[in-house]
Simulated assay, not measured.
Amino acid sequence: MKRIILILILIIIIISCSVKKTSNQNNWSESKRLEYLNNVKDSTTWDFDMFESDKNDGDLGDLGPFGIGAFPVPKYDLLGKGSFKGLGSIGDKYPMKNKTLVMNSFFVKKNEFNKRRLKDNKDEIFFQIIISTDTIDNINHNLMRNIVISRNHPDYLGQGFIKTKHNRIDYLAFQTLENNAYAIINTRIFDLNYGKTILIAPQKDKTLKSLQIKSPELTSDSILDYTKRLINENKIIEFFEVNRKI
């Protein structure tokens, strides 16, 4: 019995240390999270200029699985001056025999909360998707679109879609300040802590293949070179070239 109690105490200590380590790395605490949640409910904290701007943006069109809503949100600096420095997306296209690989990624810039974890990096990629397609519209750009949104600050979300001959691939990814990150791609859930790079290969029978890659720490400066190296690896070439028959 004493041994079981000692083991339980040890587990509690390990979990406690892990939570404290994450908080210290992010310069973030449970009290800050509660403060944010209270501000969401408190109209005196809302940024009405940003809210009016969001309402006046009108219909942005199809940008992925969810329509873009205009919600009142707290002023970003209430969580600390410099707590938000920006975010963005970066992508490219790569030829592969009779197909094209389309890549998109979302990143968060270094701010007061994540600077300890990012160290010398100016930003961090929290999601990357690479999709093989046989259809590219370089003129109208209506076969693929994406958007990355800061309105959940200090959590961030990006989404998009790409249409192929037989499929439409919808994707959404988000990262919390506690450094939890997840993606949903056509209803499949990916825990991005086990790999932020997701490969999707649509098949002729309209099914999908996926492959999750444990990529290194990536930034907006390194993502393109990393992608070029990745897609030339034999296992990646084989993944995209092997196609189920109808």
Results as ranks from 00 to 15, higher is better:
Lys2Tyr: 09
Arg3Val: 13
Ile4Asn: 10
Leu6Trp: 08
Leu10Val: 08
Ile13Ser: 07
Ser16Asn: 09
Ser16Phe: 09
Lys20Phe: 08
Thr22Cys: 04
Asn26Ile: 07
Asn27His: 10
Asn27Met: 10
Trp28Gln: 02
Ser29Gly: 07
Glu30Gln: 12
Glu30Phe: 15
Leu34Trp: 06
Glu35Cys: 06
Tyr36Glu: 08
Leu37Trp: 09
Asn39Asp: 11
Asn39Ile: 05
Asp42Thr: 05
Asp42Ser: 06
Ser43Trp: 06
Thr45Gly: 07
Phe48Ile: 12
Asp49Tyr: 08
Phe51Ala: 09
Lys55Tyr: 13
Lys55Trp: 12
Asn56Glu: 15
Asn56Ala: 15
Asp57Ile: 10
Asp57Ser: 13
Gly58His: 05
Leu60Tyr: 11
Leu60Ser: 07
Gly61Phe: 00
Gly61Gln: 08
Phe66Glu: 14
Gly67Met: 06
Gly69Ala: 15
Ala70Val: 08
Phe71Trp: 14
Phe71Ser: 14
Pro72Val: 11
Leu78Trp: 10
Leu78Cys: 04
Leu79Gly: 00
Gly80Leu: 03
Gly82Glu: 06
Phe84Cys: 03
Phe84His: 05
Leu87Val: 04
Ile90Arg: 09
Ile90Pro: 00
Asp92Met: 09
Asp92Trp: 03
Tyr94Phe: 09
Tyr94Gly: 03
Tyr94Thr: 02
Pro95Trp: 02
Pro95Cys: 02
Thr100Pro: 08
Asn104Leu: 06
Asn104Gln: 14
Ser105Gln: 07
Ser105Pro: 06
Phe107Ala: 10
Val108Arg: 12
Lys109Trp: 06
Lys109Gln: 15
Asn111Thr: 11
Glu112Ile: 14
Asn114Phe: 00
Arg116Trp: 10
Arg117Ile: 06
Leu118Tyr: 05
Lys119Ile: 02
Asn121Phe: 13
Asn121Glu: 12
Lys122Met: 12
Glu124Ala: 08
Glu124Pro: 01
Ile125Glu: 09
Phe127Pro: 01
Ile129Pro: 04
Thr133Ile: 07
Asp137Pro: 04
Ile139Asn: 14
Ile139Asp: 14
Asn140Gly: 12
His141Met: 05
Asn142Pro: 04
Met144Ala: 11
Asn146Gln: 14
Ile149Trp: 10
Arg151Lys: 13
Asn152Arg: 13
Pro154Glu: 01
Tyr156Thr: 00
Leu157Ile: 11
Leu157Met: 08
Leu157Phe: 13
Gly158Asn: 02
Phe161Ser: 00
Lys163Gly: 01
Lys165Glu: 11
Lys165Ile: 07
His166Glu: 15
Asn167Cys: 07
Ile169Leu: 02
Ile169Phe: 02
Tyr171Met: 07
Tyr171Lys: 06
Tyr171Cys: 04
Thr176Trp: 09
Leu177Trp: 03
Ala181Asn: 07
Tyr182Ala: 13
Arg188Val: 15
Tyr194Asp: 15
Gly195Thr: 06
Ile198Cys: 03
Ile198Leu: 06
Gln203Arg: 03
Lys204Met: 09
Ser210Thr: 13
Lys214Glu: 13
Pro216Gln: 06
Pro216Met: 08
Leu218Cys: 04
Leu218Ser: 01
Thr219Met: 11
Ser220Trp: 01
Ser220Pro: 03
Asp221Cys: 12
Leu224Glu: 05
Thr227Val: 05
Lys228His: 04
Arg229Met: 08
Arg229Ile: 05
Glu233Phe: 00
Ile236Pro: 00
Ile237Gln: 14
Ile237Cys: 05
Val242Cys: 04
Asn243Leu: 15
Ile246Gly: 10
